[in-house]
Design a protein around this nucleic acid. Structure first.
Lengths: 217, 217
DNA sequence: ATCACTTTTCTTGCATGCAACGAATGCGCG
DNA sequence: CGCGCATTCGTTGCATGCAAGAAAAGTGAT
């Protein structure tokens, strides 16, 4: 693979994982020195990240890690909810035994992580669960879109799971989602996923409150 | 604006409009000479287009205008249908007078183009109509996603409208969509948009048949 | 004549250099 | 002492150059 592509992944990972804080400045020279390459591949990596929206590049003024306004963030979660709902709808319609097994397996892993009270592990298994739902839609393009948006929202999801009592509720919702998909209930699966992902009520407050902490410039 | 950004838009327009055929090779030197710049901004523009999926860049082997396999194309239309359905749902829930007027106006323009039997003009008004629906969702992020995908599918939509008798049917569907949104019927609006966008039955055959013509390498 | 291999050519990918623009700093003036 | 302006500095954006890899062409053997 190219330098530029590798760097793109590397920087993306650092943003998604939170190593690079929201709003952090991305200096080309600095990154070039840090990765031991020239500015050219760095620029190419940053440009690609700018298209995905993970970073924001202002002309002649450099790039920073995107820190969307709350209202835009809410819109992103709403979009994520709709896309996941679509995945669920299609999965319920097209479920094949292979995907059914994968769903049950992912669910079991979530249960296990939940039983251990291990938030970090649950976070990882939650990710797997959602990717399985995406794939079960049997629409490669939709799954790709869903995955891309999921990654982009990853930093905020991490904040959300910190909220007390969120884990048991999340797991219960996962159970309902799988039940609806397996039952072939398109509308039910869509609604279950929509309400699982959407940010509303107290969770909105939690989300916004969580935003202040890391970007306390 | 930058050279790279300008070039990105320029090349994107040429792909969307069909000036650059599907599968056409995008030579950096050639484009650089044609636009009177060096290869650097060309490379940057192409990289950005590659991220959006409009072009496909194979390492060390240059870039070509994306020509998705039929099954992927079908998946893209299905995704478009789901996204537009989501826009419709939200629009039906949140409709404000301003958007209602915009919808009626866009619909009227479609009717006018239809009355003139002007396919090219209808194509343009159809675009406007859909963007109005996106905006009516009152979700800027979702609207942006919808617009981006719409643009990416534009070359194929153009082919579709060539099919005889598609215009009257399309207009009738537009009427139903607006009716549902104005009535606040979330499920109805979603379903109307889904079936309007989705490619199925004869239209699938038409689409695939239309694909052969331009990319007759 | 066909196939395998070598060599040439062409394109991409990265490094480097320079110019233009924006931000920060220092200076003079009110 | 505060404000406006000019200068300096730093960063980005583009051009150019070079090296590595892939496609194409040429050559020889079977």
């Amino acid at each position: 693979m190219n330098h530029a592509q590798r760097l793109r992944q590397r920087i993306e990972d650092e943003i998604v994982s939170g190593e690079l804080a929201l709003g952090a400045r991305l200096d080309e020279n600095q990154l070039a020195e840090r990765f031991g390459v020239s500015r050219t591949p760095i620029r190419e990596a940053l440009l690609q990240l700018a298209v995905t929206g993970l970073i924001q590049a202002k002309p002649r003024r450099g790039a920073v890690v995107s820190a969307p306004e709350p209202h835009l963030l809410l819109a992103m979660f709403e979009t994520m909810a709709e896309i996941e709902a679509a995945c669920g709808r299609l999965a319920a319609r097209r479920l094949v035994p292979e995907d059914a097994e994968a769903l049950q397996a992912a669910l079991a892993s979530c249960r296990a992580a939940m039983a251990l009270q291990d938030a970090e592990s649950y976070y990882a298994e939650n990710y797997v669960f959602h990717t399985v739902v995406y794939r079960a839609s049997r629409n490669a393009f939709l799954a790709e879109q869903a995955l891309s948006l999921h990654r982009r929202l990853a930093p905020y999801r991490r904040l959300q799971l910190r909220v007390r009592q969120r884990l048991p509720q999340s797991l219960a919702e996962h159970e309902a989602i799988v039940a609806a998909i397996v039952a072939g209930d398109e509308a039910g699966a869509a609604e279950a996923l929509r309400s699982h992902v959407i940010v509303q009520g107290d969770r909105f407050t939690d989300l916004v409150a969580g935003l202040r902490a890391p970007s306390a410039a």
